[in-house]
Write a protein that binds this DNA or RNA. Structure first.
Length: 347
DNA sequence: AAAACGGGGGG
DNA sequence: CCCCCAGTTTT
């Protein structure tokens, strides 16, 4: 039996029943693929449901405000996915007459759609034989063929794409692509794959050579940098606080946060109390400072660790540009801020 | 080619 | 404190 035949057989007997497997409508498939990038199914599933409930068609999504899309995305991370999703929906609805692109080449032009997602949609929705290479596929192929090339190098990307393209069932690319990814997720898992019941146990190179745990090979990422974030949680005597929209290029673009003071090291009370006397929001204003969390909250992102303190700033006057405390939960915020809002007892 | 971009899980 | 997971865009 061919590789393709074995893996599609396995798939027909072992596939999980997931909502996006009931359809080939490109809107649903696209939405599921964007949500599931860098995201486990258990985490993405509720977001998929709530997006479809709020935006049953691409036109609903296109006519929404970006702020609403970001609010629904809150907690999923990699927020550029949400901004690109929204922009692509507007592009399709307004520039492409609402017709979803139906080839790999055209799909690639959509914001937020790269090689993997274009291949997935083209194969699943339009039967185009373009092989997907996601993390599961890297793992399955590197083990089965015993390939050492690091997967996070341009050489590795090219090599695995060509191999997958050679293996794909041209007659049924949708089944093959979903089968190899599901096989990687369920059977050929990163840790402790159950090789004793694997349909490839007699032909898998990594298993024969006892190299399952070594493959796939990845170049180690650089260590995360430490940053020190101090958020100013204003509380005014008219029950207002301040949320600011993040601009610019960095993390959490277009999400909201309490006014941020980034420092070179962790702040103690006396130092920080003196420091913010000159803050532009506090100049000439009398305030009473208190520290909400004595120990920094360490929020870990891929490339930085955020050592975070929330400072309560009580002011005995009105806050002209503030928002009502009761409105705080309506804004899209990073989960770091969201967790604070949930735990802090706003009066 | 390398860095940036979230957040969740486990040891 | 450490580790793992892993698509797309930007630099």
């Amino acid at each position: 039996m061919t590789f393709s035949k074995i893996i599609t057989n396995w798939y027909s007997n072992n596939k999980r029943n997931l909502p996006w497997r009931q359809t080939t409508d490109p809107y649903y498939i696209w939405l599921s693929e964007i949500i599931l990038q860098q995201t486990q199914i258990a985490q993405g599933l509720p977001y998929y449901e709530s997006f479809l409930k709020e935006f049953p068609t691409i036109f609903h999504l296109a006519s929404a405000e970006e702020s609403q899309v970001l609010k629904l995305w809150q907690g999923l991370g990699y927020y550029s996915r949400a901004r690109n999703l929204h922009a692509a929906a507007r592009n399709i609805a307004n520039k492409l007459d609402g017709v979803f692109p139906n080839t790999y080449k055209e799909l690639l032009k959509l914001k937020g759609v790269g090689d993997y997602t274009a291949s997935a949609i083209a194969s699943i929705c339009f039967n185009e034989a373009t092989a997907v290479v996601d993390g599961n596929v890297y793992r399955v192929l590197s083990r089965y063929f015993g390939i050492d090339t690091p997967i996070n190098t341009s050489k590795g990307v090219k090599e695995f794409k060509e191999l997958a393209q050679k293996l794909i069932d041209k007659k049924n690319p949708a089944e093959f692509n979903q089968a190899i990814m599901e096989f990687g997720a369920v059977q050929c898992k990163p840790q402790n794959p159950n090789c004793t019941i694997c349909p490839f146990k007699d032909s898998c190179v990594a298993l024969q050579k006892n190299r399952i745990a070594e493959l796939p090979v990845k170049i180690k990422a650089a260590k995360a940098k430490k940053k020190y974030f101090n958020f100013l949680v204003f509380l005014s005597n008219d029950n207002k606080t301040i949320l600011e929209k993040r601009k610019g290029k960095g993390i959490w673009q277009n999400l909201y946060q309490f006014p941020l003071v980034e420092t070179e090291q962790e702040m103690d009370f006396e130092t920080f109390n003196a420091l913010i006397k000159t803050h532009h929001l506090l100049k000439g204003i009398s305030f009473e400072l208190s520290l909400y969390n004595k120990d920094s909250i360490i929020h870990k992102l891929s490339h930085q660790h955020l050592y975070t303190k929330f400072w309560i700033v009580d002011i005995d006057q009105h806050l002209v540009n503030g928002i009502q405390i009761s409105e705080v939960r309506n804004y899209a915020v990073p989960i770091l801020i969201g967790n604070f809002i949930e735990s802090f007892n706003f009066q």
